[in-house]
Design a protein around this nucleic acid. Structure first.
Lengths: 88, 88
DNA sequence: TTTCATTTGTCCGTATGTATT
DNA sequence: AAATACATACGGACAAATGAA
């Protein structure tokens, strides 16, 4: 799970792939938080911008969703936990 | 409240402004659901693509977050006490 | 259990206006 | 002038997940 800084594939996509793999394997489960940007910076030795790009890519792919000031979480959720019901 | 299809400002930004206003006024509260894309289509008489653009804009601004297959919700205010917590 | 409505995700088109090349 | 690219806007279709009945 190490990063190749020389290869053709952008580093941020390599990191996104790693996280996507952890989601696919069940290591990261629905509605659980994924590693923070700071975590990714430390784990992979990359700049914060690179970590941010990796998360943004996963978000665009629909694999995760971000709650501002709280973190980024695996989607879709397994537990409703009634936070979104609209009593119309 | 109504949409101007002739003006310079894109329709999707006009709709985003309306929703942002409802958030700012407290009409739409943190962690509560905002109108669905279908709701926006009916309320404003636009295509779904336009409604999606409006929501995407708000999401990019950090005002809302989307949980796939569940809906889009108002972002919570910054709260330093929740580090590492799940959004439920 | 099945059925149905809701909601978002994703793709296919078309058309228009603007900007660039 | 012409071709290309992009953004906006509309219309339609289907898939996947959820939730309620």
């Amino acid at each position: 799970m190490s990063i190749d800084h020389e290869g053709d594939r952008p580093v941020y996509l390599q990191i996104a792939d790693i996280i996507a793999g952890r989601i696919a394997s069940g290591d990261l489960q629905p509605r659980r938080r994924i590693p923070s940007e700071s975590d990714l910076v430390q784990e992979h030795g990359v700049a914060r911008d690179t970590a941010r790009r990796a998360v943004a890519h996963l978000r665009e792919q629909g694999l995760v969703y971000t709650v501002p000031q709280r973190g980024t979480f695996v989607s879709p959720p397994a537990d409703p936990a009634d936070e979104g019901e609209q009593p119309s």
